[in-house]
Design a protein around this nucleic acid. Structure first.
Lengths: 193, 193
DNA sequence: ACAAGAACAGACAGGTCTGTATACTTCAGG
DNA sequence: CCTGAAGTATACAGACCTGTCTGTTCTTGT
């Protein structure tokens, strides 16, 4: 039989191409024609899988959340061999990301800024993603600090978000070191008390 | 004589209107036609004062930097009557901003994201603005902590940036309290040592 | 072999975008 | 009174945008 709707090769090619272009140039700046040309796909194929561009944007964000998870999983595991501290491994992974070619900040945040519409499904998804990401981060903090994690985890989250936007604007990954040192200081203090 | 080029009424109306629309909906989403309609200005007047939309974007960013300075100056002075601590007054002013109607994050950051082009004059200006803003913040930190300011000021900057993006995505000003508490903790520790 | 689903190819409609061109109005200073 | 600067009004070019429509080709299960 023909490939099922969710695993179609054309669909996958569209998702990957759109993800790459959206991240590099923005969801508003990249048009449908550009995506189908680079994905080597017919326009009707795109609209069969994604009824509108807004649907495609949402699908790309969902697709990207999976990729982000994979990236941090792999990078942290790589670093875990040096430091047993998971929080340190996370910041090392963050630095890897900042230094990766084509780094342009957080795709979710960027999309939310460009959409500029709180009712857009993509904006809603970004909000939920950030909550999930913060929960993940809180888990790492809890391993480092134990019960008092609730107190410092949100501050660590702000340091991470701040480091992301600062790194992309300054065009340098240096912010991650500042964020890591401050986060470790806050964690150490929470532990000490 | 006719008003000089820099103080023309039409020019001012264009700047204010463009600033309002750009901030609310984004520099890419708002077109020239929309701006001239709401500013009640002829298209040729706009292009006389700003040769291209990119020039207008840059001019709006410069105009806005002045307004931001005014806002924080006024808000901090208002709060300075309650707390003598300038850093506390700053975070109180930040909260005022987060709670102001139509808050949509940092206009400079948003513009940089939308432009998605490091060579764009607007992007360059955003980078410089952030450096100036960080210097201003470092001044506040120095008053609180003295000589050791260089150590904690960058971290406080990340907390502030993180609070801005988090507040807009979560649609709540709660992040500012987290940022303030963490910043004061870092400052207190730097002072103690 | 054949029907049906999936993808391809490309034209097209209707709208929006930036930027230019043309012609008219208003008004102040010499 | 006349010149020139500033602003107004409007039409237009050329590009690009999303989404639709019509056909063709390829593959695969029955």
């Amino acid at each position: 039989m023909g490939r099922t709707r969710e695993t179609s090769e054309a669909r996958q090619r569209i998702l990957e191409t759109a993800d790459r272009l959206f991240y590099a140039e923005g969801v508003r700046a990249v048009g449908i024609d550009r995506i189908i040309a680079e994905a080597e796909v017919a326009k009707m194929s795109l609209y069969k899988h994604f009824p509108s561009k807004d649907d495609l944007i949402l699908a790309v964000l969902q697709y990207r959340e999976g990729k982000v998870l994979e990236f941090f999983g792999a990078a942290m595991e790589r670093h875990a061999k040096r430091t047993k501290d998971k929080l340190r491994a996370f910041f090392a992974a963050l630095k890897d990301w900042f230094e990766s070619p084509g780094f342009r900040g957080c795709a979710f945040q960027n999309a939310a800024v460009e959409l500029a519409d709180p009712t857009h499904a993509g904006t809603q998804f970004v909000k939920e993603h950030k909550r999930r990401f913060q929960a993940f981060l809180a888990g790492l903090v809890e391993e480092a600090v134990g019960k008092g994690a609730a107190k410092v985890a949100p501050a660590v989250g702000l340091l991470v978000e701040g480091a992301i936007v600062t790194a992309v604007i300054q065009g340098s990954p240096a912010a991650v070191d500042v964020a890591r040192d401050a986060a470790l200081k806050l964690v150490a203090e929470a532990k000490g008390v």
